[in-house]
Design a protein around this nucleic acid. Structure first.
Length: 809
DNA sequence: AGCACGCCGACT
DNA sequence: GTCGGCGTGCTC
């Protein structure tokens, strides 16, 4: 039996990022298992913290007195063996704390709330009891923490041993329960009760019959009422007479859309496949059958039926008594795709996305963990779903940068997918119309197997794309977001009662207030970034720290009234559009109109029901939408992303234009696309117009090769920040030297340079970018740099490391 | 993170 | 003398 347990404690710092060894007290000896949560004493005070058991009976070098585990929080492990190993790998790879990577894999509810309580243990004068403790004998320390006077009075009382600081670790993971009905007598006993009933007591008689039908079971009272047709009062009588007991029964918190799941007999049938789809499915099925951890790149144009390939592969995995995981980018995780999976696989499906409450997420997680759900559809973090016996992992739109988490642990879901594929001997399918250059290059080298879908299922040609050069337009007609061609086509659609989608590319866009007299730009006081105007709330907001202030009437610098708004926001475009085409009904979709929960879906539903003629939005409308009545798609400004200092800007522009073009003419009606741009000759725009991914891939690869960027090199970014610019810069110079001294000559080290947004949340940021092919000493060098800089509080410089960064600003 | 310990200036 | 400021080191 286990005597010792290795525990990772919930103290996310560099110095505590290691397992601590605890004794297993005799009363817990047969219960402690790997992956369980425990409460352990930690530190010299009476501090208690939550921790995770990551090892049992491993030898320890520590020669001090071992402490004992205080309590077990779980009866069953919350992390299985696979995920425990994965969490360690993830922490190492992303330079994150082990505890942080454990928490990212679990629903928030499994993170215990730790509270500090101050308790009176000896006579304290009445005034103090009244003032601070409000007449009670204990106090939540958090409520007074920020008041130094109270804190010092409490510390004084502690020294006098009149009060004690205690720790309470409260588990938040509470399953939701409802009232259940449970018969308290057996069949005969209930029959016996019937004999003493008044002849007019029909309801009670019926209750007895009903109870006889559920002897030994527990039924939710709401269900019992429905089935028996009896009222709540009758059940209460039953309780009084001792026939039944009300007991809590566990229920799952399920989001509303899940209520009307198809029952398993009425699932939708698989669709007929074309030859290309059949080839793809056969290859994937073979890998599933052979338990091969092969990675496939499923490259298929919009409408080529990738989803059907996914669904049939999932079905194959289920046939083999395995489970399936399908990731979809958050923004395209719409009801459309979720319902399609649900109609095929019914109640076996669990869905994980950011819209769920903590309770709902926890319950979906438990359905998966218990094996009740065999298919998981979800956004990035669903890659950690506790499915056992994975038979297939699918990443739809694999090129999407949202698969990379932009906070610690900075993991890429694609890398995690490959790890789990290998661990489970399961194939991984990466699907995209415009694969990332990294994936496509691997497919060319044979690391991945390329599966091509060149033809659209409905055999319709892709909509024609027209590129409009905005430069002469502006010269002739002055500043406008709309070219004549686009206006003519919009009006034409309106007359034909067809719909249009307009996309405003906001990537890299700054919309700001500037003084025409002195050139002053209104900036955030905390960050080195201009404030953005929000017409709906009539404020200026900082998109980074959330700072908010009223719209100025006078220039804060020179006092001039000539302070004006520059840049293009959706609101301004909407105003111009409603002026140009007054009778068009417009729905605007951007961060502001969709911030409230459910607004995204609501607006799309309204548009789908043709309550508007034009859907105007930002990038969020480019993905996955499928409206048969849309015959025109316009991109107002195709090139704003091209000027960014980021080697992926062309790739992103090409993706975006390809994606948004796919939104036109989805059904039998012919569609067309208009792209407005100031760079009509740019290869990303020209090749997107020609739908030529292949040519784009070749040209972009040549550029990446020439500039030593991925996929020819790996990249890693180091960031340092400090309140004082010089301190951050100095720390980085030192780090650079250490890198130069230790890394291979073939490794390229760029910087340090101030970041594009050099100041954020009152801190200055510097970065170094490393480009390398392979470098044995890179990992250990970075690890050492982290240790050295973070262990001592070296002037509070914060260092973070981002492997394979998606953005370089 | 939290907490103790230890060293310094300012005060009942 | 003692209180409390913060810099430093440690947590099985």
């Amino acid at each position: 039996m286990a005597q010792l347990a290795q525990v990772i404690v919930d103290v996310p710092t560099m110095q505590t990022n290691q397992p601590y060894t605890y004794q297993v007290p005799p009363r817990l000896e047969n219960q402690v298992q790997l992956g369980m949560r425990v409460i352990v004493p930690f530190g010299n005070g009476k501090r208690q913290v939550q921790g995770f058991v990551v090892g049992l009976d491993q030898p320890t070098k520590y020669d001090g007195q071992l402490k004992a585990i205080s309590a077990l929080m779980d009866l069953q492990p919350v992390i299985n063996g696979e995920l425990l190993r994965l969490s360690k790998w993830l922490a190492d790879r992303t330079y994150a704390f082990w505890i942080s990577s454990i928490y990212t894999m679990l629903p928030n509810m499994l993170k215990a709330k730790s509270t500090r309580i101050v308790r009176i243990i000896d006579e304290v004068d009445e005034q103090t009891v009244f003032d601070i403790f409000h007449g009670k004998d204990e106090l939540d320390f958090v409520t007074v923490q920020s008041n130094p006077q109270i804190v010092s009075r409490l510390l004084k009382l502690q020294r006098q041993k009149k009060v004690r600081f205690e720790y309470v670790i409260a588990d938040q993971a509470k399953p939701k329960t409802t009232v259940g009905i449970r018969p308290q007598l057996d069949f005969e006993g209930l029959e016996e009760a019937r004999t003493s009933l008044h002849p007019n007591a029909h309801a009670q008689n019926r209750l007895l019959s009903y109870l006889q039908s559920i002897v030994g079971k527990t039924v939710k009272q709401t269900d019992a009422e429905k089935v028996s047709g009896l009222k709540a009062v009758t059940f209460n009588v039953g309780v009084q007479k001792g026939w039944l007991a009300k007991v809590p029964v566990e229920v799952y918190r399920t989001p509303h859309s899940q209520e009307n799941l198809p029952d398993d007999e009425h699932l939708s049938k698989p669709l007929e496949l074309n030859d290309e789809q059949q080839v793809a499915v056969n290859k994937i099925d073979q890998a599933i059958d052979d338990s091969q951890s092969q990675v496939f790149l499923l490259e298929g144009v919009t409408g080529s039926g990738k989803t059907e390939v996914y669904l049939q592969s999932i079905a194959r995995a289920l046939q083999n008594h395995k489970t399936a995981l399908m990731l979809v980018p958050e923004i395209s995780l719409t009801a459309q795709i979720v319902n399609r999976v649900r109609r095929r696989f019914g109640s076996k499906v669990a869905v994980l996305h950011s819209g769920l409450s903590n309770g709902e997420r926890f319950d979906e997680w438990r359905r998966i963990e218990r094996g009740e759900a065999k298919v998981v559809v979800g956004a990035r973090s669903a890659i950690f779903a506790p499915l056992k016996d994975l038979g297939i992992i699918i990443l739809d739109e694999e090129h999407e940068s949202s698969y990379k988490q932009d906070e610690s642990p900075r993991y890429h879901a694609r890398e995690v997918a490959k790890w789990r594929g290998k661990y489970n001997n399961a194939p991984v399918v990466l699907g995209s119309a415009t694969p990332s250059l990294e994936s496509r290059a691997r497919a060319m080298k044979g690391v991945y197997q390329l599966l091509l879908l060149k033809h659209r299922v409905n055999k319709q040609p892709l909509p024609p794309i027209q590129v409009v050069d905005m430069r002469p337009e502006i010269k002739e007609r002055g500043e406008s977001n709309f070219s004549r061609e686009l206006l003519v086509k919009l009006t034409d659609r309106l007359a034909r009662n067809e719909q249009s989608i307009l996309m405003l590319n906001r990537r890299g866009f700054s919309s700001f207030m500037m003084c025409r007299d002195c050139g002053e730009v209104l900036k955030c006081p905390n960050c080195d970034i201009s404030l953005t105007l929000h017409l709906d709330s009539h404020t200026m907001k900082c998109h980074y720290c959330g700072h908010e202030e009223p719209i100025p009437r006078y220039c804060p610098n020179c006092g001039s009234r000539e302070i004006r708004y520059y840049g293009t926001g959706t609101e301004k475009v909407e105003q111009e559009l409603s002026h140009l085409i007054p009778n068009a009904r417009i729905i605007r979709m951007d961060v502001d109109t969709t911030r409230r929960k459910g607004m995204h879906e609501k607006l799309l539903r309204q548009f789908g029901q043709h309550q508007a003629d034009i859907l105007l939005g930002t990038q969020m409308i480019a993905k996955g939408l499928d409206f048969p009545n849309v015959t025109l798609v316009g991109v107002l400004n195709a090139d704003t992303g091209l000027g960014l200092p980021d080697f992926r800007s062309s790739e992103r522009t090409f993706d975006l234009l390809s994606q948004v073009s796919g939104r036109a003419g989805r059904a039998d009606k012919k569609g067309e696309v208009i792209i407005q741009t100031y760079n009509p000759d740019h290869y990303a725009i020209r090749l997107a117009q020609q739908n030529d991914y292949e040519a784009f891939f070749k040209q972009e690869m040549a550029l990446r090769h020439q500039a030593s960027y991925p996929p020819y090199y790996f990249t890693i970014r180091i960031m340092a920040s400090h309140e004082e610019e010089a301190v951050a810069a100095r720390a980085m110079t030192k780090i650079k030297q250490e890198l130069v001294d230790n890394l291979m000559p073939s490794t390229i080290i760029l910087g340090p340079t101030p970041r594009a947004i050099a100041r954020m949340k009152r801190r200055y940021y510097y970065q170094i970018v490393i480009k390398y092919k392979q470098d044995q000493r890179l990992h250990s060098t970075l690890q050492r740099i982290l240790q050295e800089t973070q262990s001592k509080r070296r002037a509070d410089v914060q260092i973070s490391i981002d492997p394979d960064p998606q953005y370089f600003m």
